[in-house]
Design a protein around this nucleic acid. Structure first.
Length: 597
RNA sequence: GCCCUGGUAGCUCAAUUGGAUAGAGCAACGGCCUUCUAAGCCGUAGGUUAUGGGUUCGAGCCCCGUCCAGGGUACCA
């Protein structure tokens, strides 16, 4: 039973007895008392005053007096303009600490039973170029969301749909055939995804040149884009691929293999992973089948040129193409096929797509299409729509070379972390290997926190000129706080201090201690809310808050040099709880906590 | 054109979903290490929440208008 719900009950009793009515859901609004006022929790009394037929101040005072007389947890109260500030006995907070300390999974929810799985699709790269900053946000959000769901007792399947087929990879293939000179990751030492990406860029250059030449020859833009020889060649490759031409398939497999090896390395660096990977090349035919079934059942219609369409005007949307006139499938077709395969293979209770907000319309359509096709889960799919990462100059554009490459970014961060760590000289007594691991943990902590602390729905700005901070509201700040606590706990162990959750009866709390306890009490609610609102940012900001709170406490009060052994014990238990929460909370963000730094 | 987002300190972000005097960090300035890690702590300064109206006990948040930015908009993904 948490503190807030106990107080809720007390308040309800008070209102019933004082005013003779049962407050409706949401009328008793409790919130944390703001720091500038005396108290722990605050009741907003405005919603009550009409029914109580009293002034806000009277209502608050009456409730406050009733609480003091009947609620043993309540020590004092004060009323400030319609706000009833309630102070709880220190023993309430100490009881909370005991509970938090004893529960290994404090704040996390027990497994929910046979609710089915939550499948979370994220990452979903194209195989024609390496991952960039935008993908990083996607990967971090997807992974973190999965961990948050797990923390809330859900069974999660993390999945990735690799867009391994289509015109984009054919462009890279064609360019490699033309100008590759047999280059491979092995004989060039270039990471596979980057090598393939280089050829994609080469293709684009050539293509642009051809368009310009054709336009100069008097051809219309659109016509030129279609007629350009390199585009024709790429289309020819796609056609051959669909016809299973052995040579084309072999090249496709070879180049995709390079890309996968590259992606795997990046995923490993980022610390993300998947339980099940789907490949578009294996799902798109299923999609086609489903669309044709829908056509047969009269759900869709065919135009004279042979293309297949869905009419979604009744749903307030538009007409949407599902199969091109040449019979090839579009993105939507593939998503239908993938969805069907997934639901055939897993007992999915909820399907979550982590995909940027530029595809809001796509998922609205997909939801309706699946619904039409008879999958009741279609309606309930959740598009976790996140904002894009922008540079100070605006959107990242691969064609203009302004994308921030994922591998470069990570490597750069690690370098900064190493340099800074060496300047501070904190890890001189550990092995180089140990230090290296820590620097990496810090670098990734900085990067991940930087991205995850922002509300996922909003666009965010990343400035590559200024490297990500390691001070202030950052991942390393939280990691550092953790390392300091671990250091104290180590020393306590060395001094043979054993911890006890039995606190002396009359023990009183310092202000900073109580603030920390209040923050600890909020953790379970934050975990719940992070899942309910799909927001790792909530957890990130909470972890920062508790770290800040701890640092203030740590600054003001000594733990091991405190003369009163009961206080030392209490503070160690408190510290242990903070460590536990940091590991758990930051763990759900995919951020590791070092024992020293 | 139409549809959907968003606009908060110089910069990057918060704001318990309608609650108190809008908070943090960075950058600037000033203080705190013979004491558990100074990647820390404390302080100063910085705001007409794009803008004009409206709703009510109460609005950064809800409604309407305007401006600005981003995204989408029938055979790209």
């Amino acid at each position: 039973m948490n503190i807030e719900s106990i107080l809720q009950k007390r308040l309800q009793d008070a209102v019933e007895q004082l005013f003779g009515f049962t407050p409706a859901e949401g009328v008793l609004q409790l919130q944390q008392t703001r720091k500038e006022f005396e108290g722990d929790l605050t009741l907003v009394v405005f919603p009550l005053v009409k029914l109580a037929r009293r002034s806000p101040a009277d209502t608050a005072t009456l409730i406050g007096e009733h609480l003091r007389a009947h609620a043993p947890e309540v020590e004092a109260f004060n009323v400030v303009s319609g706000f009833l500030n309630i102070t709880l006995h220190d023993r309430v907070w100490l009881a909370l600490l005991q509970e938090a300390f004893r529960d290994d999974r404090y704040g996390l929810k027990a497994a929910a039973g046979d609710e089915g799985v939550v499948m979370i699709e994220y990452s979903s790269p194209n195989t024609n170029k390496p991952l960039h900053l935008g993908h990083i946000r996607n990967n971090l959000l997807g992974y973190s969301l999965a961990e948050i769901m797990k923390g809330n007792g859900r069974t999660v399947v993390k999945t990735n749909i690799v867009n391994d087929r289509g015109i984009h990879i054919c462009k890279s293939m064609y360019a490699w055939q033309q100008w590759g000179e047999g280059k491979t990751p092995e004989n060039t030492g270039i990471k596979g995804d980057h090598l393939v990406g280089d050829f994609y860029v080469l293709f684009d250059k050539q293509y642009k040149k051809e368009i310009a030449e054709l336009e100069a020859g008097g051809m219309a833009r659109e016509e030129a884009e279609n007629q350009a020889p390199s585009m024709q060649a790429a289309r020819e490759l796609l056609r051959k691929w669909e016809a299973r031409d052995p040579e084309t398939i072999a090249l496709w497999q070879r180049m995709n293999g390079w890309v996968y090896a590259g992606f795997d390395a990046t995923y490993r660096e980022l610390g993300v992973n998947f339980d099940k990977i789907y490949y578009e090349s294996e799902t798109y035919l299923q999609g086609k089948e489903e669309v044709l079934r829908g056509l047969g059942e009269g759900l869709f219609y065919q135009r004279e040129d042979g293309s297949v369409w869905a009419d979604l005007t009744a749903e307030g949307l538009d007409h949407k193409v599902l199969l091109r006139s040449d019979g090839t499938s579009v993105y939507m077709t593939q998503d239908i096929g993938t969805a069907k395969m997934r639901f055939d293979e897993y007992p999915i209770n909820q399907m979550v797509y982590v995909v940027g907000n530029e595809q809001n319309y796509h998922f609205q359509v997909l939801s309706h299409l699946l619904d039409k096709l008879g999958y009741r889960w279609g309606r309930d799919l959740y598009h976790f729509s996140y904002g894009m990462v922008e540079l100070p100059s605006g959107k990242m554009k691969s064609r203009e070379g302004t994308v921030v490459d994922a591998d470069d970014l990570i490597a750069g961060m690690v370098e900064v972390a190493r340099k800074m760590g060496q300047e501070l000289g904190k890890l001189e007594d550990v092995t180089d290997e140990e230090a290296g691991k820590t620097y990496k943990m810090i670098a990734l902590g900085a990067l991940k926190y930087f991205i995850l602390k922002v509300d996922p729905r909003k666009n965010m700005t990343f400035n590559p000129e200024e490297s990500i901070d390691f001070n202030g509201n950052t991942g390393p700040f939280i990691q550092y706080t953790h390392a300091r606590i671990m250091s104290v706990l180590r020393k306590a162990r060395e001094n043979q201090i054993s911890l006890s959750t039995t606190f002396p009866p009359g023990m009183t709390l310092e202000a900073k201690e109580k603030e920390l306890l209040k923050t600890i009490s909020e953790y379970p609610g934050v975990v719940t809310e992070a899942a309910a609102s799909y927001s790792p940012a909530l957890l990130a900001n909470y972890c920062y808050e508790i770290a800040r709170e701890f640092n203030q406490f740590y600054h003001d009060h000594s733990i091991l040099n405190e003369p009163d052994p009961d206080k030392t014990n209490f503070r160690l238990v408190l510290s242990e709880c903070v460590v536990k929460i940091m590991k758990s909370g930051m763990g759900m963000l995919g951020i590791g906590m070092p024992d020293r730094m």
